[in-house]
Design a protein around this nucleic acid. Structure first.
Lengths: 172, 172
DNA sequence: CAAGTAAGTTGCAAAACGCAACCGGGCTAC
DNA sequence: GTAGCCCGGTTGCGTTTTGCAACTTACTTG
């Protein structure tokens, strides 16, 4: 994948896939949310090979999701902590988790996300319109933004045209 | 990864990672949201190798995200369409996309998600409490749910304890 | 019927992954 | 202070996954 996936220019999904699209990165982020910070903790709790872990931690630090800091009390240990950018992935993680429990495997309810202050479970993550209504996938369109490069712009416009012609065909 | 990543029992993130944790699956889902359906379309638009594409499509069909249907008008072509489970990934995709644009690379605004009916851009995806307030990562806890297996339960409780002791340490 | 096209499949080379052994600095205990 | 252990890596090597290109089979089109 690494060499290819120029895919469609600066598509944000392509960029995030290049960074987190492997079997471990998301698990490492999850572990970090669960409080892991030391190299050893990640290794033990995930059962990941040490060379791979080194590689992924470097990548995540390089991307600004984790911050590497050598402990002051014991200079052998290194702490990897989530940065603000890393913590901003929390909605993604929850959305994935909720989707997984609803649509994968045996429909189990194995993790609860509750508000610390109230003890109440949070709502399912949803797409919400500008004025606060919950939206469905069918009610949305993707349009090229101001910074879309030509390839992405072409792709999104093609998708629009296709949807348009499909709608026209359905209407006829 | 495939063999390992038993990770922590039935953790939903581990399950979703096993399914979508590679360089292509999410891109295929994105393409499907953009209207691609035929084998050739995925191939051309993503630049993915055909054997890999075959493999991923089968996996996604097997997981119930895509539905494989041979065209009636031309029996050579095969249509892969998102199922309800697949469409339910839309919030995840948008959350990833929004995160990517905010925290990756050059802060660009290359894709706009707008409501078809109003033309208004949607709100950023957020975690919302039971009574509708937007929550921050720090205001949440993960607790084992009724279906958590022992390993996951232990992991989540350990995280709780650790957070507790850290809080105690910070308070002292 | 000849040519072209769609969706795979196969074989092979290159890259990524996983494991286990090794390493160097830093603590700890005697 | 030195022997032994822990921590965070690194290295070498075998296995798996990926990527590419050529081939195949079924079908449509001219």
């Amino acid at each position: 994948m690494s060499k290819s996936n120029p895919c469609q220019g600066n598509c944000p999904i392509a960029r995030v896939t290049a960074l987190l699209g492997d079997g471990w990165s998301l698990m490492i982020i999850r572990e970090a949310f669960l409080g892991s910070g030391k190299f050893n903790e990640f290794e033990r709790r995930l059962g990941i090979a040490r060379n791979i872990l080194t590689n992924r931690l470097r990548k995540l630090v390089g991307a600004g999701l984790l911050k590497r800091r050598e402990s002051e009390t014991d200079r052998r240990v290194v702490e990897y902590r989530l940065t603000a950018a890393g913590r901003a992935l929390f909605p993604v993680l929850i959305a994935l988790s909720q989707w997984s429990e609803q649509h994968l495997g045996d429909c189990s309810h194995s993790v609860r996300y509750v508000e610390r202050a109230t003890g109440e479970e949070i709502r399912p993550i949803r797409v919400v319109s500008a004025d606060g209504r919950e939206l469905d996938a069918g009610e949305l369109v993707m349009l090229p933004g101001p910074d879309a490069d030509p390839a992405l712009r072409a792709r999104l416009n093609a998708a629009l045209d296709q949807a348009g012609s499909e709608a026209a065909r359905a209407a006829s």
